[in-house]
């Protein structure tokens, strides 16, 4: 009875565990996006009806500037501003009394131009931005973009 009293030692087998973990790593590596995403609020972020009414009153009293958005540039009257310079230009507009901006997209404008313009106006502290599609397009008007 040589081995009767000896305890049978079981070794923990790691290989199946490692296989499953490798498969999980491959799944997450292939199906995840780890880029830093940001959000630009566009419309409907004013929750209370009182805020909405106040914003409507402000909109009526504010001076409005029309910006025509093209690819990489914005036209304000006769002045053409590169999108990279829109934030400081919008800040000076706000300081000059502009509280409301109407952004009209032209045929050449892309989604990236819209995002950059909205972001620049938000950074400049312009409270009310209205985004409108080009007039020849099908009923594409949108209000909002309140930071």
């Amino acid at each position: 009875m040589r081995g009767a009293g000896r305890k049978l030692r079981r070794r923990f087998v790691l290989t199946p565990l490692v296989d499953v973990i490798f498969l999980l790593v491959i799944f997450f590596a292939l199906s995840s996006r780890i880029a830093p995403f940001g959000l630009i609020p566009v419309s409907g972020h004013q929750e209370a009806p009182a805020d909405r009414e106040a914003a409507a009153e402000r909109r009526a009293s504010d001076a409005q500037t029309v910006l025509v958005l093209s690819h990489g540039t914005v036209r304000a009257g006769s002045r053409i501003i590169a999108l990279g310079d829109l934030a400081p230009a919008a800040t000076s507009m706000r300081e000059a009394g502009t509280g409301s901006v109407l952004v009209v997209t032209s045929r050449r404008a892309l989604a990236e131009d819209v995002a950059q313009a909205l972001n620049a106006l938000r950074l400049a502290g312009i409270g009310n931005v209205r985004l409108v599609g080009r007039p020849s397009g099908a009923a594409t008007s949108q209000t909002g973009a309140s930071p």
Binding site: L69, R107, L110, A111, S141
Partner: peptide, 17 residues
């Protein structure tokens, strides 16, 4: 998509609102 025409984006935003 960054190169989507802005009109399509504005249309989609309008539909959602």
């Amino acid at each position: 998509a960054r190169d989507l025409p802005a009109d399509t984006l504005v249309w989609a935003l309008g539909e959602i609102s």
